[in-house]
């Protein structure tokens, strides 16, 4: 076995172990986000009207979106732990979708919570509908950027597979 092939095998082995660890972290995070999100949404029936209901709806919707993101992340890392390379088209697509979902999580929960709480007759002021979660938006854009890097890696992987 050549030196390059040995180092490739060793790195892939480490990547598979890291993937399992990150997969477990994502799965745990998805579970707690789902629990928290459902608790928030079901508790609105007992909450006081006004901005409090808006906050609970906003946090509930955010938690449910994060559940989907973490769930997709767990599935992707599990897949990477079973395959021989992280640079596959499916993983690039998943990272792009996760980036878009982070952007949705940044922009959608506040207006959605505003509409729902207004329809229940207990809405906050209209300005709160414009709340944007800037850190989440930044993470979304960074995920799209990481997707570009993975796409470049996919090109190299394809070239390597064709050479072999």
């Amino acid at each position: 076995m050549t030196k390059s092939a040995k180092s490739k095998t060793a790195i892939i082995a480490w990547l598979k172990k890291c993937s399992i660890a990150v997969c477990v972290l994502c799965a745990i995070s998805a579970f707690f986000n789902l629990k928290g999100g459902l608790q928030m949404l079901f508790m609105t029936g007992n909450a006081e009207p006004g901005a409090y209901i808006f906050e609970m709806f906003r946090k509930g919707i955010t938690s449910l979106l994060l559940t989907v993101i973490m769930g997709m992340g767990a599935v992707m890392f599990f897949r990477i732990s079973k395959e021989d390379s992280p640079f596959r088209d499916r993983n690039v697509r998943t990272v792009h979708i996760i980036g878009v979902l982070f952007l949705v999580t940044a922009f959608v929960p506040a207006p959605a919570a505003f509409v729902i709480s207004t329809l229940t007759g207990a809405g906050p002021s209209a300005i709160e509908a414009l709340l944007i979660n800037l850190p989440t938006a930044a993470i979304g854009l960074l995920m799209l950027f990481i997707g570009q890097i993975l796409h470049y890696g996919t090109m190299l992987q394809l070239e390597s597979d064709e050479t072999l």
């Binding site: 390059s4 790195i11 990547l15 070239e159 390597s160």
Partner: peptide, 17 residues
Amino acid sequence: FFLAWTFRYGIVLQTES
């Protein structure tokens, strides 16, 4: 850390290329 190892694998592929 996962991304660092992914980049390390990418270095091997880049060198091969």
